[in-house]
């Protein structure tokens, strides 16, 4: 279907207008310094300047989600920093958790964290996730926030934290990752080469269950 005329005008205006995206916030050196200390030395630098984020709502009021979602919009444009939200924990480097760790979400939170490949970081977003916030003292939430369920690397307080604050926190995480010294990798186990795999292995039929099951 051809684009109607007024829409074309909108499009033209959009192309020639100055960008709507805000300039990126500066990240605070103290946050970066604190982070560098806490991040696992081995994992740093491996990923380069890119982080895939998986979000889990551990019982938030939905206020934090509104601000997290705003990050993906044109004003904050998270992707220009190499940060993006992914649909599966298996693709994620960062677990971003909101909410006071509602007990009913514990299992799902643990499972999501477990499904993420190493190295991984956990960011607790919002007063609730930091320490329970206004829901402190309720028997329905974990005492002490998200950190009681999964190991937290970065806390971003606020009720809810503004998108700018969220951006600062996530940028700090990125910069900590980049400015970290090159990782010292432990010796990797020697894997068989392709040629090795191609060689038929002598097998003892009596020892191999697969052979046993086949009477022929």
């Amino acid at each position: 279907m051809p684009w109607p005329r007024p829409l074309l005008a909108d499009l033209a205006r959009t192309v020639f207008r100055r960008p709507l995206t805000d300039p990126p916030p500066e990240s605070t050196p103290e946050i970066v310094a604190a982070l560098v200390e806490r991040l696992d030395a081995m994992a740093r630098g491996r990923l380069g300047r890119s982080l895939a984020i998986r979000h889990v709502d551990a019982g938030s009021c939905n206020g934090c989600e509104l601000e997290v979602n705003a990050l993906s919009g044109v004003a904050y444009d998270l992707e220009r920093f190499g940060l993006r939200f992914v649909a599966s924990p298996r693709h994620a480097d960062v677990l971003l958790v909101t909410g006071p760790a509602a007990r009913n979400m514990n299992e799902a939170l643990l499972r999501t964290h477990a499904a993420m490949p190493d190295p991984k970081w956990v960011v607790a977003v919002g007063d609730c996730a930091v320490d329970g916030g206004v829901f402190q003292g309720s028997p329905a939430v974990e005492e002490g926030g998200v950190g009681q369920v999964v190991p937290v690397d970065l806390l971003i307080p606020g009720c809810p934290p503004s998108p700018t604050l969220l951006l600062e926190g996530l940028l700090a995480l990125l910069e900590a990752e980049v400015s970290a010294p090159p990782p010292v990798l432990p010796p990797r186990p020697v894997e068989p080469s392709l040629e090795d795999w191609a060689q038929p292995q002598p097998r003892d039929p009596a020892q191999d269950p697969a052979w046993k099951q086949d009477p022929t």
Binding site: G59, G99, A102, R103, A108, F135, A140, V141
Partner: peptide, 8 residues
């Protein structure tokens, strides 16, 4: 899943 015990 988001039950927080607000009424209590």
């Amino acid at each position: 899943y988001a039950h927080k015990g607000v009424l209590g």
